[in-house]
Design a protein around this nucleic acid. Structure first.
Lengths: 334, 334
DNA sequence: GAATCGAATTGAAACAATTCATTTTCGGTA
DNA sequence: TACCGAAAATGAATTGTTTCAATTCGATTC
C-alpha cells in the first residue's frame, strides 16, 4: 500500500511537503506542487483516513441511527441529514436500530469506538441511559424526532401533541363520534404524544365523542392489517380511525378494502407522516405531514455547529417543527 | 481522552497486557485480568478504532452503496447485508448514490480513504471504470443486483431476463395483445434485461402481440404517474402494462385510478420487485418478486469470504438468483 | 543447588498521517 | 561581499493501538 513517504520519495521532497500539497496547497511553490501531484497520480496514492483520524482524535463521519429503515419517513430524515453532512464534507454512517434497545446499545458503542464526529439518533431507550454515556465520553449527539430534557443536549422534533390534535379535530369536524386510535405501546413517546393531543382536542371540544385505543405490537403494514381486523370486530364499530403512522394506516386500509368496507363512507382514515405511499394509496390517505427532510437537515446542521470550529459558543438547542394536516379522500366523503 | 496507556498505569501493568486482556483474555492471569477490566470500567476506556485500523491496515467496516434508498427494494437488500455483516462482527456504512455517477465516484473515493474492508455496490456507471480503480487499490467489492463480466469480481444478481419473460408470459396467457413496457433508459442494465426477456417470450410465442416501450426519466412513483398519463393517450390504448419496478407501477395505478380506468379490466398491471407496498396497494399488484434480502446476505457473505482468513483460496463467483411471479388482482380479471 | 521449562508480562517497533519549530534557499539591499 | 527577510521545505515528534521477541518469575526436575 503506497503511503505519503512513497510519494515524497518519488517526488523528491519531504513528507511534510506532500502533506502541505494536499492540505494547504498555497504554501507550496507551484513547480513543487505539480511534481508532487503528478507523483500522487502516478503511484495511485490514497491517503489513509485512519492515520489522519488518529492524529486528529476524531473522524469525519457522523452516525445516524434510526428506528426503522423500512419506514420511508426515516429514509427522508436520512436523506436530509446526508445532504447537510456532505455539504460540510462529512460522511454519514446510516444504521437501523429496528426499535431494539439492544441493537441501539450495540451501535452506540460501535460509534464510540469509531470516535465518530457525532451522532444523530432517534432513541429507542427513553431512559436516556445510552445517551448519558455519550455525554461522559464527550461525543456530541442530537436527538431526532424526539425532544430531550432541557439542557441535556440538542434535539429536533415535531410537535406530536399538536399533530394528534390536528387529526382528531379534523375527524370531529367531519361529524365523527366513535373514533379509534391505532398505535404502538404508550411507552413510545410519539404514540403517547399523539394520543395526548387527540384527547386534548376532545376535552377542549367538550364533546362526548369516544376515542378508543387499539394497541399493536409494531408500527408496520402487517400490524395495520391486524388492527384493521380488530377494528371491524369492535362494537360499536368506529366510524373514523386515526393511525399513529402511515404504515399502520395502509395496513388498516387494506384490511377494510378486503372486507368490503368503504373508505371514507363507512370508515374514515387518517394517517401520520405523509410518506409518499400515503398519497399513492388506493384511496389517497389523509395524513399529518411531518417535515422529515427538514428535520434531518436541521439535526445535522445542529451537530455540525456543535462539533465545528465555533463549538465553544454552542448552546444546546431544542428545535420543534410544526406538523401539517394534508386532507385527501380517505377522510372526506364526496 | 483516556487511552490504553492510562489503563495500563491505573492497573499497574504494561500496555501489552491491557491489549491482551482485550484481545486474548486467555493469555492473562485471572487476577491481572480482573484488575485491568476494573480499571477499564473505572476510567471509561473505549478503544480507538482508528488506531487499531492504522495498525491492521484496514477497517472493520464494509460499505454498501445503493442506487436509491427511497426504494424499499434496496432497503431489503441493505437489511440482508447488514445482518450478515453484523454476524461477522463488521459494521456497515450505508450510502445512496441516487443513480448519480458523480455521487458514486465521490463515495467510492471516500471508501478508499476509509480503507473499508470491502464494498457492496449496485453500480451506476456501467463502464466499470470506478470499480477498476478498486482492483488497482486491492479493495474487494461485490456487485449487487448487477452481474459483472466474468473474472473481474464477485456479483450477486437476479435473472432479469427471466423476470421480464415471466411478466410478459403471464400477460400473454391472460390474452393481452397490446402491451406496454414502462422503464427507464435502456442504458440501465436492469431495464434493458427485463425488456430483452419480455421480447424473447414474444418471439418464442410467435405471436403478433405488441410491446411498446414507454421511457421515463426516473424510477419512482412520480415518474409512474406521468407514464400512466402517457399510456392513456396512446392509440391503440394498451390493455396491459409491465413496469420495470413497483414504484412505477404504483404511480401508473394511481394515474389510472384518477382517470377512472379499471384495473385489471380495462388495463392490467404487472410490477417488479414485489416490495411490501405492492401487496398493500389499492388493487394489490401482481409483481415479479426479487429475493432482495437474500441477495444482500449473499453479497455480504461473498465479501466476507473474500476478505476473511481464507481469502487466499477465494475465487470470484457470480451468483444468479431466480425471480418469481406473484400474481395478484392487478392482472387477473375475476 | 543448578538447570530447565512454561506461563505471564514487558516494552519497543510499526502503522500513516499532521504539525510545527527549524533550517535552507534565494533575491534584494547596503 | 555580507547580510537580511521572506518564502519554501524539512524532519522529528505525536497520535493509540497491536504484535512479538525478549524478559521475568516460579515451579519442577535432576
Amino acid at each position: 500500500m503506497v503511503g505519503i513517504k512513497d510519494v515524497a520519495r518519488a517526488a523528491g521532497v519531504s513528507v511534510g511537503t506532500v502533506s502541505n500539497v494536499i492540505n494547504r496547497p498555497d504554501m507550496v511553490a507551484e513547480e513543487t506542487r505539480d511534481r508532487v501531484r503528478s507523483a500522487i497520480r502516478r503511484l495511485g496514492y490514497v491517503r489513509s483516513e485512519s492515520a489522519r483520524q488518529l492524529r486528529a482524535g476524531r473522524s469525519r463521519i457522523i452516525a445516524l441511527l434510526v428506528l426503522d429503515m423500512a419506514n420511508p419517513f426515516f429514509v427522508d430524515v436520512a436523506t436530509g441529514a446526508e445532504r447537510a453532512a456532505r455539504e460540510a464534507g462529512l460522511g454519514v454512517m446510516l444504521c437501523n436500530s429496528a426499535q431494539s434497545a439492544a441493537e441501539e446499545a450495540d451501535y452506540l458503542s460501535l460509534f464510540a469506538e469509531q470516535r465518530v464526529r457525532g451522532v444523530l439518533v432517534t432513541p429507542v431507550d427513553e431512559s436516556g441511559r445510552n445517551l448519558a454515556d455519550f455525554d461522559r465520553h464527550g461525543i456530541a449527539y442530537v436527538s431526532v424526532d424526539r425532544a430531550v430534557p432541557s439542557g441535556t443536549g440538542c434535539s429536533v422534533s415535531v410537535d406530536d401533541v399538536r399533530g394528534g390534535g390536528l387529526a382528531v379535530r379534523h375527524l370531529l369536524d367531519q361529524g365523527h363520534r366513535e373514533m379509534a386510535y391505532v398505535s404502538g405501546s404508550m411507552a413510545l413517546t410519539q404514540c403517547r404524544d399523539r394520543y395526548t393531543g387527540a384527547l386534548g382536542v376532545l376535552a377542549e371540544a367538550g364533546t362526548d365523542a369516544q376515542l378508543r385505543h387499539v394497541e399493536v405490537e409494531r408500527l408496520d403494514v402487517a400490524a395495520g392489517r391486524d388492527a384493521g381486523a380488530r377494528l371491524l370486530g369492535m362494537s360499536p364499530r368506529p366510524t373514523a380511525v386515526f393511525c399513529a403512522n402511515d404504515l399502520l394506516a395502509l395496513g388498516v386500509l387494506q384490511a377494510l378494502y378486503g372486507a368490503g368496507v368503504a373508505v371514507p363512507d363507512e370508515m374514515a382514515l387518517v394517517g401520520y407522516d405523509d410518506i409518499e405511499f400515503a398519497a399513492a394509496a388506493a384511496v389517497p390517505l389523509t395524513s399529518v405531514r411531518q417535515p422529515a427532510y427538514r428535520m434531518g437537515r436541521a439535526a445535522a446542521d445542529l451537530l455540525i455547529e456543535e462539533t465545528g470550529d465555533a463549538a465553544a459558543e454552542h448552546a444546546h438547542r431544542r428545535i420543534v417543527l410544526q406538523p401539517e394536516l394534508v386532507v385527501r379522500d380517505s377522510s372526506m366523503s364526496t
